[in-house]
Design a protein around this nucleic acid. Structure first.
Length: 520
RNA sequence: GUCCCGUUCGUCUAGCCUGGCCUAGGACUCCAGAUUUUCAUUCUGGCAACAGGGGUUCGAAUCCCCUACGGGAUACCA
């Protein structure tokens, strides 16, 4: 048992953002895959903040990243605001650990001080380029520096960087969980800087020290890190630690097929939240960018994903982001939501459209109204504008509706007479009057085969019967009658079933609007 | 320049590792039809792809090679 645990340590994965910008699509997907892999393997998922780029790191970005992850439902077991036994989880709080590792590497000869100035490094690079060397990087001038030269540099006041001493031409055979077996010759890489004179580490160094300290076993990250992975493997080796399993995944491309950048405003995850995209739909969609749930299904929950997710199944080819499909997926999720949940979650976008009184005193009525639009919207934010006609004092009539009102010369007469008919009917009263009884009795949108409940008020079916009897009586074709009525009542030519509209509006408002339309 | 990775319908993908069940499946989009009082939903049907060329094999989307195209890397950023 103990032995088994040594061979297969508890999987520990991390997402390690640098707080230099918002959480964008690519970062969200990386986090999501790491999270899913951790959950799938019954392991631990943690967050580490790589804030060593002090000039660009901000507290605001950190907040946005954490909020974005939480919104997507990606939770972490260790990290900021969660604590954990392997902290601190901010790199700037781990400087002593890097220092210690640096001393060890210096002592074992895996690292050396480099006194070159940026200008000297650049000159060396130019020289290599002129020699048509395939690889162009640091020329390793300080590799073999003597004590005299070193002392001379120090007298000049130069402060050294710490560089990693790369093996000269070693063929690294590595296995990447996504790319498979790949060979890289270390001559493609130069002696990279680990530590600045001020003691702040650079990415590859801090990353490895932390992955060791945090016992990371698997790393899923963007393919821009593939070569960093080679450098890091060597560093693990030099430090006598085991390297995690790496999986380098292709980048997400934008519609133009270019790399998604942090500057693309609509790639900030919180923008999707603010625009009314359901989080679980965004999660679902992002998961599909480079991974397939199965051959015949692309709608799934987080839990279902965790059941079947395997890092090895992430695709090697880059994917383009398609907002059209994302939106379809949002609509799909909204349709499947219980209507009360939809109302609650859409509320932030409904505050201006729906009077506060409705929320507190007419919840069933509002739920019915929202239910009528459930299959007609894709985003929470689309609900408010659609509901406007319900509360309008003076109805806005759009062009299509005006056409429908003008098409039949007799329409004004029909509407006036229909108003009289409704005035004497048992239709439910109109908001703000109390109509809770009717709203509780009838669930919208009404369905043809639904049984008619016992109620003293007319429901949609009853109103339809009344209407059909009326059109028969005045000798008007039902089909032509219906359009001007909808126009008069909602001001548009689209929307829920007409009798749901009548029911929602209630007797008095219907009468009033029909008469107003009849009067022109 | 050099190195690495990739390329299946317009898009996301299944299939590829372990060749035959692939006249290549699903989804989004689009088109047509059905249902319907409008819109939407739903249902039915349709358009649409193995980048190109060689090779291996009885047989290749699947294995090998070359070409083209795309992406990534080549920092005192991460």
């Amino acid at each position: 048992m103990v032995l088994a645990r040594m061979i297969h340590p508890t999987p520990r994965l991390r997402f390690a953002p640098s707080p230099t910008g918002p959480l964008h699509l690519g970062g969200a997907r990386t986090a999501l895959y790491n999270w899913a892999a951790a959950r799938a393997m019954g392991g631990t998922f943690l967050l580490r903040i790589e804030d060593t780029d002090q000039a660009r790191s901000t507290e605001a970005s950190l907040k946005i990243i954490l909020a974005g992850l939480r919104w997507l439902g990606i939770d972490w077991d260790e990290g900021p605001e969660a604590g954990g036994a392997h902290g601190p989880y901010f790199q700037m709080q781990r400087l002593d650990l890097y220092r210690k590792a640096a001393d060890q590497l210096l002592a074992t000869g895996h690292a050396y001080h480099c006194f070159c100035t940026p200008e000297e490094i650049e000159a060396g690079r130019k020289e290599m380029e002129a020699q048509k060397a395939g690889f162009v990087g640091y020329n390793g001038r300080c590799r073999t520096i003597g004590a005299d030269q070193r002392a001379a540099f120090e007298r000049e006041g130069r402060r050294p960087n710490l560089r990693f001493r790369m093996p000269e031409a070693r063929v690294m055979k590595v296995h990447d969980l996504v790319r498979g077996d790949v060979e890289v010759n270390t001559r493609e890489l130069d002696d990279w800087v680990m530590l600045r004179p001020d003691g702040v580490p650079l990415y590859n160094f801090a990353c490895v020290v932390d992955d060791i300290g945090m016992r990371i076993t698997h790393v899923v990250r963007g393919e821009e890190h593939f070569l960093n992975g080679i450098k890091q493997r060597l560093l693990f080796e030099a430090l006598g630690a085991e390297c995690p399993q790496y999986a380098h995944i292709p980048l997400i491309l934008n519609k133009e097929g270019k790399k998604l950048s942090k500057r693309d405003a609509d790639t900030n995850m919180l923008d999707y939240r603010d625009k009314g995209f359901p989080a679980e739909a965004v999660f679902n969609y992002i998961a599909l960018l480079g991974w397939g749930f199965s051959g015949d299904r692309d709608l799934f929950t987080r839990e279902e994903m965790v059941q079947v997710f395997r890092i090895e199944n992430i695709g090697k080819a880059g994917a383009k982001f398609d907002e059209e499909k994302l939106r379809w997926m949002c609509g799909e999720y909204i349709r499947r939501m219980p209507v009360d949940q939809l109302a609650a979650r859409a509320r932030p976008w409904l505050e201006s459209a729906v009077p506060a009184d409705v929320w507190t005193h007419h919840p069933r009525w509002l739920a019915n109204a929202i239910a009528c639009y459930q299959e007609r919207v894709q985003l929470f934010s689309e609900l408010g504008p659609r509901l406007g006609w319900l509360f309008a004092d003076r109805l806005q009539v759009d062009e299509a509706a005006q056409k429908n009102l003008a098409k039949e010369p007799a329409a004004p007469t029909w509407l006036a007479n229909f108003a009289d008919e409704l005035a004497g009917s048992a239709m439910p009263p109109s908001w703000p009057a109390d109509r809770a009884e009717a709203d509780a009795a009838f669930a919208l949108p009404s369905r043809k085969d639904a049984p008619v409940p016992e109620c003293r008020w007319l429901g949609p079916a009853g109103i339809e019967a009344l209407t059909r009897a009326f059109t028969d009586r005045i000798g008007v074709k039902f089909g032509s009658f219906v359009h001007p009525v909808r126009a008069a009542l909602t001001g548009t030519d689209k929307g829920p079933g007409l009798f749901d509209v009548l029911f929602l509006l209630g007797r008095d408002t219907c009468v009033q609007r029909l008469r107003a339309a009849a009067a022109g």
